[in-house]
Design a protein around this nucleic acid. Structure first.
Length: 550
RNA sequence: GGCCCCGUGGUCAAGCGGUUAAGACAUCGCCCUUUCACGGCGGAGACAUGGGUUCGAUUCCCGUCGGGGUCACCA
């Protein structure tokens, strides 16, 4: 009996690996093309870190004329979540990061290097496990979970490196006859990799992001095929990324310490190893401590949060790109009109340490992004968001023509107004422009400098009766407010007032504020003339009258 | 604990042996302005620490401290 016989006993039906090597040939791509992927587990919502990786991988592949694919790593059925794949597919779609290949729905996929769902690749992994078994590079292990646990405890007690390796690897030195005997007796087993590594030797690794990193070799006989017949992450990674002809593995840096193992696996399998780029995770400050953004504790860790909050997709991508390549910010300022795709993204310039997530900055980018949009775009995005998350806003937007007028206020000029950072802010931003809404609740008027009831009513009364004319142009309109101010003893110019404050009760700015508050119940609004143009005569008179009655 | 990575203002960060140590967000002040925002100008604010190497270290080396990652039949 030899290794080959043992391998046949374990995987009698597995195909020869040459079958797969031929089925998934080298890709015919231009020189330097990057083939990369996003390979999440369907265990719930997509994390911003995943979005970040996808964005980076997508940029690299797009830039080089390569391929970006989506592979689902569902080898742990215990953690799987219903519609997990759909969630992932939709999240990428929401951010317009579309894979060239891979899963496109819960069950469908596209591309010639599939299946792209690991649970459907069982026979492939087994073929390669068999290949290793035949060469004596893997072996069946009969240790139970309890036994392995016991080994670990002994190691801990003796303060030596934990793990299944060297003399601790009990099943490693079983003869093929002994192993075959146990299998025939129906003993449970898993398949382990027989590591050729030595802990006292170093390996050199060059990571695209982290740079040169030296590690001790891996000597762990890790599990490659679990009791359920599915592979572990490490083994699946080696087999899949080889067969899918991945050139660059772009993943979270929690994997960095597995690199020695992965390199060894690739080598023993006879594969050419891909290049690795380990991305630092996005962190969060938690009581003075940095930690990764957590799915449990931080709502902003889930990409769905950004959609729900209505933070513009472009803002999220710009923010992420900004973290990824610090040159992005300068580029953006120099090229405000260019699309994100035109930015020359550079993997090697990515930061080695993890950035703290900065919501304030993200929202600032949101403001800038929205300020550059046309009224039409603002309308469309608001409506799209409202349909899903805010029925009241959706109703407000029913009158498209009116909404476009509102969104058009102070927009489209060289210094557009920056007052909306996300779609969920739209309602509070425009609600006072709707009479139905405005009059539906009790109104409080936050008058400022001029807050005497009589003074206020005098201003409003005189304005309506003598000065207000909806057809005035802006200059005439404002000249009239000045005249009104003068008539009632307020300074017509702010400068005049400042020069001689005792001579006046207040100035034209304060009078304007009275009008603004009476009209909108706010102290902070965009240009009042434009607002009045949009509101129209009927509404204005109604509002001012109401204010006088209060 | 072993191994690995990291440490420039509150945050993101330029910087590659000699710089007045950029810039952005945030913050403060002023200007502009009928309000707010925008915009403009300006202020405050940083090389974790101790040793080397060097004529000279933020930059190179070592230690310390601090932070992070990883040590599963999870990915």
């Amino acid at each position: 009996m030899n290794y080959k016989d043992l391998a046949d006993l374990i995987f009698p039906n597995a195909k020869d690996i040459s079958y797969y090597e031929e089925k998934y040939p080298e890709r015919d791509l231009p020189e330097g093309a990057v083939v990369s992927r996003f390979a999440p587990s369907p265990t719930g919502f997509v994390h911003v870190g995943g979005l970040y990786q996808s964005l980076v991988a997508k940029e690299m592949t797009r830039k080089t004329g390569g391929v970006f694919f989506l592979r689902v790593e569902d080898t742990d059925q215990k953690r799987e979540v219903e519609n997990g794949v759909t969630d992932i597919v939709n999240s990428l779609k929401d951010f317009d990061i579309l894979p060239d290949e891979g899963m496109v729905s819960e069950t469908e996929e596209k591309g010639n290097y599939g299946p792209y769902k690991q649970s459907q690749r069982k026979e492939i992994y087994q073929a390669y496990a068999k290949y290793l078994l035949e060469q004596g590079k893997a072996y069946p292990c009969f240790c139970t979970a309890e036994e392995v646990e016991e080994i670990r405890k002994k190691q801990e007690a003796a303060k030596i490196r934990p793990g299944y390796y060297g003399i601790w690897a009990k099943c490693r030195n079983l003869t093929v006859e002994e192993a075959a005997e146990k299998i025939k007796n129906g003993e449970e087993y898993i398949v382990r990799f027989k590591s050729p590594g030595r802990e006292d030797r170093k390996i050199k690794h060059h990571d695209i992001i982290k740079g040169n990193v030296d590690f001790p070799e891996s000597d762990q006989d890790i599990v490659i095929i679990k009791a359920d017949g599915l592979p572990t992450y490490h083994f699946a990674h080696a087999v899949d990324d080889h067969l899918m002809r991945t050139t660059h593995v772009i993943r979270s840096d929690e994997w960095l310490s597995s690199v020695p193992l992965h390199l060894q696996l690739f080598h023993e399998l006879g594969f050419k190893a891909p290049k690795y780029a380990h991305i630092s995770p996005i962190m969060k400050n938690d009581n003075g401590n940095k930690r990764k953004l957590s799915k449990r504790k931080d709502p902003e860790a889930a990409v769905s949060y950004y959609k729900e909050e209505g933070i513009p997709v472009a803002a999220v991508k710009e923010y992420l790109l900004n973290i990824a390549n610090s040159t992005f910010e300068n580029w953006r300022r120099a090229n405000p009109e260019k699309t994100l795709e035109e930015f020359d993204f550079n993997l090697t310039k990515m930061s080695v340490s993890g950035a703290l997530f900065d919501m304030v900055k993200l929202l600032d980018i949101g403001k800038t992004v929205i300020s550059r949009m046309s009224a039409q775009e603002v309308y469309e995005n608001s409506l799209k968001w409202a349909k899903e998350y805010d029925k009241e806003l959706e109703k407000m937007l029913e009158d498209k023509e009116y909404a476009l007028k509102i969104f058009g206020i102070e927009r489209g000029n060289k210094k557009p107004r920056k007052d909306i950072s996300k779609w969920s802010e739209v309602k509070s931003n425009i609600e006072y422009m709707y009479d139905d809404y405005y009059f539906s609740k009790s109104i409080e008027y936050p008058y400022q400098v001029i807050n005497d009831k009589e003074d206020i009513n005098n201003i409003l009364k005189l304005y309506i009766e003598k000065y207000y004319n909806q057809n005035d142009d802006k200059q005439v309109w404002f000249d009239k407010i000045k005249e009104l101010s003068g008539e009632l003893g307020y300074a017509k110019e702010v400068k005049e007032y400042k020069a001689n404050p005792d001579a006046y009760k207040a100035h034209v700015g304060d009078v304007s504020t009275v009008l603004r508050v009476a009209l909108t119940a706010r102290t902070n609004t965009p240009d009042m003339y434009e607002i009045m143009q949009v509101l129209g005569k009927e509404s204005i008179v109604k509002r001012l009258t109401k204010a006088m009655e209060e």
